[in-house]
Design a protein around this nucleic acid. Structure first.
Lengths: 112, 112
DNA sequence: TCCATTCATAACATAATTGTTATATAACAA
DNA sequence: TTGTTATATAACAATTATGTTATGAATGGA
């Protein structure tokens, strides 16, 4: 189960998005993930904890290593909220098409 | 131009997502947006400022009112990043299909 | 003009985030 | 067993976020 608060919050950090980008290419250990960043290993460990807490990544145990990989369905669940918003918006635009188009042109003008 | 840090960060707050949800139904003033929340008007004003800063909403001036509405293309831009991530992931799964399927089954086991 | 309404901003308190260093734990290798 | 590697966690500092109350500015109506 993915909660949107922690998911979006996790995605708000560029380091964490870079980690996800790296993981999109395949599994990686903590040290491998830490290497490209000018940041200590504990800092990266905490980013991973945030990502795991948000349900965005999964980890296994392999000796002393903890390879991480993306949680496949997580992105899909985030998409659901965005889809819903986008659709509500689209319905609204269908209805108010002309009005909004006009507002777009009158942007910033006082029309009272 | 929408930056992902502020966009995702803005979406991380449930009050702000609720505001966006309301705006998906159409334009609303600050007072209208504040009404459903147990929160003071200045607090809502600041949430709106965050949403505006993230490029997620637009405002006009109409007398003493500042009607807000969604910035149509914002969600699309967020989607681009998610699409990109999803596609990288998918490519990876195509390549490593068997391996990953196996890992799914061996979850948590030590395979050194 | 005078008052009410709508909204923004400043000043402030509190809590959360993010990084650091230091240290603990567990597995591996000699 | 002893040292090394991989990782986590605790304690701490600095910054940012989020809410509050108090107040200011602009508009609109009597």
């Amino acid at each position: 189960m993915l909660d949107l608060d922690s998911a979006f919050s996790a995605l708000a950090d560029p380091t964490r998005r870079a980690i996800l980008a790296r993981l999109a290419l395949g599994e990686a250990t903590v040290m491998e993930l830490a290497e490209p960043f000018e940041m200590t290993q504990p800092a990266v460990s905490r980013h991973l904890k945030v990502l795991e807490g948000a349900g965005l990544i999964l980890r296994r145990v392999e000796g002393t290593k903890r390879p991480c990989r993306l949680a496949p369905q997580a992105i899909t669940e985030i998409d659901r909220w965005l889809d819903w918003l986008r659709e509500a918006m689209a319905r609204n635009y269908d209805r108010l098409d002309g009005v909004l188009a006009e507002m777009e042109n009158e942007e910033g003008k006082d029309r009272s």
